[in-house]
């Protein structure tokens, strides 16, 4: 009797309506909203390298920040952009911001407007926003030669030659490195044409979905750092102290991963139990 009930239970588990899974996750996600708590975040070497790259630069040093994500990846990548820009502006670094993804423009503009006001930074003096150009490969190759070929004007229509911030640099070889925050194949273009063709240091901030594909480039030294998804963003926030939603998301992530693991374990047990019965 007990054995039959157990078999019925595992049959039900195997045929569970997916909406029960959604409901469980919804309940779990609400818990940290009602009862806030903190989870410690361990930092990884690949994120520390990006942090150290920004941290070791001196005031007035240049780096290129690529903001190449759209609103659908905002949850994972915007905390990275926020923390890195905060970190750079707080150290008085000169930032050249560009977009090789069309929707990155709105993301970059929002963050630049907010943080330039916070640190009293001026467009054209402390940073340069290049805007968007299509065909990433061509844009990277030409920026490796001269920014002005692809971007004769900045995003606000001001000639690059007239901007004080651009007086010291001609091309990407004159910046200390590139940090590209991307949700698409722009990362591949930076590895291939940026590091591969010109050899300048490249670090990436990518979505969780993409990250497993880019660790191989970290091992080969083609990128010097990698910030992966919301966990990577939380690590950068932990290191830099500039928080948005990265660290705040980790308690939600922890509980949701726990419930998903329970579902995976239960479905595997259910699979083996029901498979054994089918064989008999």
């Amino acid at each position: 009797m007990i054995k039959e009930n157990a078999v019925d239970f595992w049959d039900k588990v195997m045929n569970l309506d997916r909406r029960w899974v959604y409901l469980s996750i919804a309940i779990v996600v609400i818990i940290p909203t009602v009862i806030p708590f903190q989870v410690p975040v361990a930092t990884t070497p690949e994120v520390k390298k990006v942090f150290n790259f920004i941290n070791r630069m001196e005031a007035g040093d240049y780096f290129y920040l690529g903001i190449d994500y759209d609103p659908s990846a905002l949850a994972e990548l915007d905390p990275m952009a926020y923390a890195i820009l905060n970190h750079a502006f707080s150290k008085d670094l000169k930032v050249v911001v560009g977009c090789l993804s069309q929707f990155g423009v709105a993301m970059a503009e929002t963050r630049l407007a907010e943080l330039s006001e916070k640190y009293d930074k001026k467009s054209g003096i402390d940073y340069c926003f290049l805007g968007y150009r299509p065909y990433p490969a061509i844009v990277i190759l030409t920026m490796g030669v001269d920014f002005r070929v692809t971007f004769p004007l900045d995003y606000y229509g001001v000639p690059l030659d007239s901007l004080p911030v651009m007086q010291g640099i001609k091309n990407l070889m004159n910046v200390k490195g590139v940090v590209d925050i991307t949700a698409g194949n722009v990362a591949d273009f930076w590895i291939t044409y940026g590091n591969g063709r010109f050899g300048f240091p490249v670090a990436l901030g990518v979505t969780g979905v993409m990250s497993a594909d880019y660790y191989q480039y970290l091992q080969s030294g083609q990128i010097f750092g990698l910030i992966s998804g919301i966990k990577g963003a939380a690590e950068y926030e932990e290191l830099s102290g500039f928080e948005t939603t990265g660290l705040a998301s980790i308690p939600y992530q922890t509980l949701t991963h726990a419930i998903i693991l329970i579902f995976i374990v239960m479905s595997n047990i259910g699979y083996f139990v029901t498979r054994g019965r089918k064989k008999r």
């Binding site: 996750i25 996600v29 609400i30 909203t33 659908s72 905002l74 949850a75 994972e76 979505t207 969780g208 979905v209 990250s211 497993a212 594909d213 992966s228 998804g229 919301i230 966990k231 939603t245 705040a248 998301s249 939600y252 992530q253 949701t256 991963h257 998903i260």
Partner: peptide, 26 residues
């Protein structure tokens, strides 16, 4: 093992989208 790592990171990414919306609604 490779697919598993990819799946785990995908789950994290999808949950991040949900969490961001929940934090926004809150």
């Amino acid at each position: 093992i490779g697919f598993g790592a990819g799946f785990g990171m995908t789950v994290m990414g999808r949950v991040a989208l949900l969490v961001q919306r929940v934090i926004f609604l809150k």
